[in-house]
């Protein structure tokens, strides 16, 4: 078959996928862009063109700036912790000990647990009056009295981050473990003979093999964390005093609770742009690390 007809056939085979994606994602995205320049309401009026009003109001509003900071905190801390814990767990699982296979098998459990179930479970654990965390900490003497974990701005976000980490670090661990197992045994042995210490060995022998896969995990997790909605919706709904309100929750509130579809759309697009910039920066980084490996 000639090159052109191969290409034509390829496009034909791609067509169903592309058609669905354009219909269900491309078109709504364009429509969101259109909406973002109007004062449309969710129910009733179609809305008038208002130029960049929505964007100006959104970016200058204190709600947006505060929420952006909250979201960034959530994303950076939780992803960083997941990476560190994940790599540590992977290094551990790469050692030989009894029960290793079983422990590896367990790692899949938090990942498989639906996000909403995870959030519900942790909300019960954090319950200020009857929660397991308060009970456990007071019974072993670490805490004098029960306290409110999700009700204090100081601990609410941290509590959410812990719940999110618990579910996601095992995924990072599994990815890192697979990469570790690709490190050839003889290189490790050689570095041992050379007298490299454990940290030098990790830095110069192991890490290069981990960098690529970890980078991908990092990108995926950061994007996810920036879009976070489910876990916060179930656990705090943005409280106390809006200290855990993230961008997605803010968009929901604007577009659906207050029914201001227009300004909700502008907010959503700003979020999209932020995520895109992040992803692009990461992509550049991935290319760089991939380049330095080969």
């Amino acid at each position: 078959m000639s090159g052109t007809s191969m290409t034509t056939r390829a496009w034909l085979l791609m067509l169903p996928l592309l058609a669905v994606m354009i219909a269900v994602i491309g078109w709504p995205l364009i429509d969101t862009i259109h909406l973002s320049f109007t004062d449309a309401k969710l129910v009733g009026t179609a809305g008038n063109f208002v130029g960049i009003d929505n964007y100006v109001k959104t970016i200058t509003g204190s709600n947006f700036q505060r929420t952006l900071v909250t979201t960034a905190k959530f994303a950076i801390i939780s992803v960083f912790a997941e990476m560190v814990l994940g790599v540590l767990a992977a290094l551990l699982l790469n050692q030989e000990f009894r029960g290793r296979t079983m422990l590896r098998g367990l790692m899949i459990l938090p990942w498989a647990l639906p996000t909403v179930v995870n959030a519900t479970l942790w909300r019960l654990i954090y319950n200020p009056e009857y929660g397991a965390l308060n009970a456990a900490l007071t019974q072993i003497g670490l805490l004098d009295a029960y306290r409110s974990w999700l009700g204090e701005p100081g601990t609410a976000l941290a509590s959410l981050i812990i719940a999110d980490c618990w579910k996601n670090f095992p995924l990072v661990a599994l990815i890192a473990l697979a990469a570790l197992q690709a490190v050839p045994r003889d290189i490790q042995a050689a570095s041992l003979v050379d007298g490299a210490g454990p940290f030098a060995r990790f830095r110069f022998v192991t890490l290069p093999y981990l960098a690529g896969p970890l980078m991908v995990a990092l990108v995926l997790r950061t994007i996810e964390a920036f879009k976070v909605f489910d876990i916060i919706w179930v656990m705090t709904r943005g409280g106390p005093a809006n200290s855990t309100r993230t961008l997605s929750i803010l968009v929901y509130q604007e577009a659906f609770s207050f029914q201001r579809a227009g300004s909700g759309a502008s907010l959503a697009l700003i979020v999209t742009l932020l995520v895109a910039v992040l992803a692009a920066a990461y992509a550049a980084l991935v290319r760089k690390t991939a380049g330095s490996n080969t």
């Binding site: 200020p128 009056e129 009857y130 029960y146 409110s148 999700l150 009700g151 409280g239 106390p240």
Partner: peptide, 14 residues
């Protein structure tokens, strides 16, 4: 002090 994260059902339980 936990009132700040209570809904009606939590009040009832307490």
């Amino acid at each position: 002090p936990n009132s700040k994260e209570f809904l009606e059902e939590d009040v009832r339980k307490v």
